[in-house]
């Protein structure tokens, strides 16, 4: 054993003996390879695995509709008498205008044929869909704090086409909730993120309080 050490001790870097093994640089290189691979797969590959793209049933054109209705967003997304918010319009509500195929465009035809005629509710994707444990009421925000729709929902009302909708395979959440950026850095351009602390931060700013658990949970 000692002889082997003696043999190799003169040329430690140039001619590593089989027993002495790799040099520090090689080892470092391996470390960097592993490190880089992990980072890459984690930041680039993993989100692709975690989220699945859910196609929109209809590529809804908000801008087009906005031109046709009188009351802005409220025309289709309105408050009911008890203060609850209607959310996406039901088929019956769409039917008020879309009684038959108008042949305006592909989407309209698809809507009329697949849903109106089949009497089937459209399974709209809801970007801002919160889980069942969350209690959210539009009334205090829109009527109480007089917030604009766009403050939370971005400029979806002016869009001509729906941006992609992705769903977390594990949780079933819309990707908008966490934000499209895995690191949650920077403001997303489409709309604010909607994890709990995003709500809390706004509440702290606006009401000086994080709020109470029951305020937003059920």
């Amino acid at each position: 054993m000692s002889t082997q050490t003696d043999n190799t001790s003169n040329t430690p870097s140039n001619d590593p003996s089989p027993k002495k093994g790799a040099t520090g640089w090689v080892i470092l290189a391996f470390f960097i390879i592993g490190f880089g691979f992990s980072l890459l797969s984690g930041w680039v590959g993993f989100p692709k695995l975690l989220y699945k793209e859910v196609p929109h049933p209809i590529d809804f054109n908000h801008a087009l509709h906005m031109d046709l209705v009188y009351d802005g967003c409220d025309s289709c997304h309105y408050f009911r008498k008890d203060g609850s918010f209607s959310g996406s319009p039901t088929l019956d509500e769409c039917r008020d205008c879309h009684g038959f195929v108008m042949g305006i465009n592909e989407n309209e035809e698809k809507f009329a044929e697949e849903y109106v005629l089949e009497d089937k509710e459209v399974p709209w994707n809801n970007y801002a869909k919160q889980p069942d444990c969350v209690y959210f009421s539009h009334a205090p925000h829109v009527k109480g704090a007089e917030m604009d729709c766009a403050t939370c929902h971005g400029d979806i009302g002016e869009s001509e086409s729906l941006r992609p909708y992705q769903e977390n395979r594990l949780t079933g959440y819309s990707r908008d909730i966490w934000g499209w950026n895995m690191s949650r850095l920077g403001e997303p351009e489409y709309a604010p993120r909607m994890k709990m602390m995003d709500c809390v931060n706004c509440h702290v700013e606006q009401t000086d309080s994080k709020g109470n658990c029951f305020q937003c949970h059920k």
């Binding site: 080892i27 391996f30 470390f31 960097i32 390879i33 592993g34 490190f35 691979f37 992990s38």
Partner: peptide, 9 residues
């Protein structure tokens, strides 16, 4: 070392 890098990354 590779494993270490993988873990650290």
């Amino acid at each position: 070392s590779l494993a270490g890098g993988l873990v650290a990354g």
